[in-house]
Design a protein around this nucleic acid. Structure first.
Lengths: 110, 110
DNA sequence: AAACTTCATCGTAATTTTACGATGGAGCAG
DNA sequence: CTGCTCCATCGTAAAATTACGATGAAGTTT
């Protein structure tokens, strides 16, 4: 895959967020009143089997979006705020570029 | 898939952006000096077969990120600025929520 | 010790994604 | 009309994703 290494990582992170369940997980982590943890609650709130949720957590972990401590029974996850902010930054860049363009509509098309 | 319809659409759009090639396509469209079009140039700039690029364009089109006119030879694509801005907005929301949290670090974990 | 809860992981299956070459349609150039 | 370029689509194949249930490890409770 001849693509920029940095782009591949960004794409991986974006892709990790591209699933309703994982979106829900990130929101749950964001909304956690304590620092950021949680886990069995996530399973309880999602309409998915426990093993499937665990798998989604793994995807997010491998993409670097979240971090986790897997000690014994109660595991614990929290957001990698840096990584999430980086993705947000990239998207914000798109949004800003789009805003700058919206003045000049389509242009050369036919 | 018992998920909120709105979340499914958002996830689909995010997912569509989660591939280096499609990221490159969006950037090319953003960087186009004319309004927004282009097509053979995209193929030329990507290290992928023409049919593969066409498929990526289809993914972006079906996710609502881009729109296109497929008249005869020179097809033409442009960004759905609204849709892209919406994704950016959702991500920006994450970024902002993260920024509000960064003061209070981890919290309840062990 | 025995039972229970909380998870990660494994095995499995169905579906989707990714990528290519081949094919064929549509317009343009000769 | 013939050939050319541009591109969507089809057929195909390999790999990844998504989702379950089953299993078993690691603490906790009784």
């Amino acid at each position: 895959m001849p693509f920029d290494e940095e782009d591949v990582q960004l794409a991986t992170r974006i892709k990790a967020l591209g699933h309703p369940a994982r979106l829900a997980i990130v929101r749950a982590l964001l909304g956690a009143p304590d620092g950021a943890c949680r886990c069995r609650d996530i399973v309880r709130d999602l309409p998915l089997a426990q093993s499937t949720v665990s798998q989604h957590l793994k995807v997010l972990r491998e993409a670097g979006i979240i971090r986790g401590e897997i000690e014994g029974p109660r595991s614990c996850y929290w957001l990698d705020t840096q990584a999430l902010a980086e993705v947000g930054e990239a998207m914000g860049g798109f949004q800003r570029a789009v805003a700058a363009k919206t003045a000049e509509p389509v242009g050369a098309c036919e």
